[in-house]
């Protein structure tokens, strides 16, 4: 690191300062990852295996039927690719940080983070970056491209831009819900289970929304909006949307989740009384 980049966070202000800090944090994470190269590759294999496993599941189902609701085989494969893409982005940017929150509280490291001259939510959410998950998104992109070719899609630039923006909304939903769950560890110290619990929700995100009806559909759309995260970007990209209201519901729910997580976070921080002393 050159001297200029190291002092940059001290002299910059506002969002540029945060950008500088984030750059330094990312650099740090990459250096740490590269110290354990074998482990890095093994985690990539783990991610690929689980991804392959989901596609196998869908292939087995489609060897016995030719549609699930209105969804054809390659539409669902595209959806699994998209769900995985969004999930991996979420992993890359946020997941490890949030699962460590309960550890920070238990060991008292959170006290130290609160003293630093940066926004604590920023630090808790973005302290480490997971390079491996960025690499894993490539597999997800490859699957989407393959499914797209099989579906003979001819996407325009608008579809790529729209898909990217809706994916960001999807990541925001994952992030907000996970932060809300992790905030519970402010009250019960043993909260490792919460992160594990969230993994089960990913299972819902990669299924076609046509599989859910009535109460379940409402629950997984408006209470825990897992059916919006990947389904809406996919439906937009493969031109399967029934109405623009679906896009609006994704944006609204992403906003609502962010707001809820901010309220929860502020409430938790306000009532935080250190663990060790």
């Amino acid at each position: 690191m050159s001297k200029e980049t190291r002092i940059a966070p001290l002299i910059e202000t506002g969002w540029r300062r945060y950008l500088c800090i984030y750059g330094a944090l990312c650099q740090n994470s990459i250096m740490r990852d590269m110290q354990f190269k074998v482990n890095f590759v093994l985690w990539l294999i783990v991610e690929l295996l689980w991804f392959g496993l989901q596609i196998t599941f869908i292939s087995v189902i489609y060897s016995h039927t030719d549609h699930i609701g209105s969804w054809s085989r390659y539409e669902v494969i595209f959806l699994i690719g998209a769900a995985n893409f969004i999930q991996q982005l979420f992993h890359a940017v946020f997941l490890n940080n949030i699962t460590q929150l309960s550890e920070h509280i238990r060991t008292g490291r959170l006290d130290f983070m609160l003293l630093l001259p940066v926004n604590p939510r920023f630090l808790v959410s973005l302290r480490t970056m997971d390079l491996g998950s960025y690499v894993s998104t490539l597999a997800a992109i490859a699957v989407m491209v393959y499914a797209g070719i099989q579906l003979e899609l001819q996407p325009g630039i608008i579809h790529f831009v729209g898909f990217a923006m809706m994916s960001v909304c999807g990541v925001m939903i994952h992030y907000s819900l996970m932060l809300i769950l992790a905030s519970i560890s402010f009250w019960t110290i043993k909260a490792e289970g919460f992160a594990w619990g969230y993994y089960n929700l990913f299972n819902v995100a990669r299924l076609p929304d046509a599989a859910f009806k009535g109460g379940f559909k409402a629950f997984f759309t408006f209470a825990i909006p897992m059916l919006l995260v990947a389904n809406i970007p996919t439906k937009f990209f493969i031109q399967k949307l029934q109405s623009p209201m679906e896009i609006l519901s994704l944006i609204m729910m992403a906003g609502a989740c962010l707001l809820a997580s901010e309220i929860m976070w502020r409430f938790a921080i306000k009532h935080y009384t250190s663990a060790s002393s």
């Binding site: 699930i68 594990w196 089960n200 009806k213």
Partner: peptide
């Protein structure tokens, strides 16, 4: 908590087959 969350993917699978 774990027992409750395990039911979610199971429920999703059952709904998928029902469809």
């Amino acid at each position: 908590f774990r027992a409750v969350f395990t039911l979610i993917p199971l429920l999703a699978n059952i709904l998928l087959w029902k469809t």
